[in-house]
């Protein structure tokens, strides 16, 4: 496996920014992905935005002393998501059930994506993409959940388009200030 696809590795080299055209194409991809998730079109998301070898990871963020070598998260420990494609499909299968009560009546979603940076990698087919997000979910009358965080994505070129091969999601919350995570980030 290419090192950059290893989910446990943070991005390190930010010295080869992609050209403006690539950056615009990636931005279009991420915005379209966000709009797809806002529409709860999860099957479309799997079909058009996610690659076969996706590794989708969101660790829990522990509060640790700065001197603690373990750090706030570690791959292999507790996580909110640590999914391959087959596991993402299971989550999507629940969303489409009419008895998914936490999604019926529907939740109103908004995925705001910003701080997009695109870098070339050692593999010409792969791009390293950083972004920040604000996720807002509102339900029923006054239920509102907001999650902020950062993503480190690896996108794979598919002709003129891209697919998500790796996503690391690092949120800023320690205790998740929500009862659930009925969305993808």
């Amino acid at each position: 496996m290419t090192d950059i696809l290893d989910i446990s590795r943070p991005f390190t080299a930010y010295d080869r920014p992609a050209d403006a055209e690539t950056e615009r194409a990636v931005t279009r991809f991420l915005n379209a992905e966000a709009r797809t998730l806002d529409r709860e079109a999860y099957q479309e998301w799997l079909d058009h935005f996610v690659d076969e070898d996706i590794h989708y990871w969101m660790p829990d963020m522990e509060t640790r002393n700065r001197s603690d070598a373990r750090g706030p998260y570690r791959h292999g420990d507790s996580a909110y998501f640590d999914d391959t494609l087959s596991e993402l499909k299971v989550r999507v299968a629940r969303f489409v059930e009419p008895s998914a009560w936490a999604d019926n009546p529907a939740t109103r979603h908004l995925h705001l994506i910003s701080n997009i940076e695109v870098y070339e990698t050692g593999d010409p087919s792969l791009l390293a993409v950083c972004s920040a997000f604000t996720n807002v979910r509102n339900r029923n009358e006054t239920d509102q959940d907001v999650i902020h965080g950062r993503r480190e994505d690896v996108l794979r070129r598919h002709g003129d388009d891209f697919r998500l091969a790796r996503r690391r999601i690092l949120i800023v919350q320690n205790v998740l200030l929500s009862k659930n995570l009925n969305t993808f980030l």
Partner: peptide, 23 residues
């Protein structure tokens, strides 16, 4: 670890529907 994450965790397919009932 992965099975619990898929079922009984905030993004888990079972726990998601429990929380709203209790709330």
């Amino acid at each position: 670890r992965k099975g619990v994450m898929m079922t009984f965790s905030p993004g888990g397919v079972f726990e998601m529907d429990d929380g709203e009932n209790w709330e």
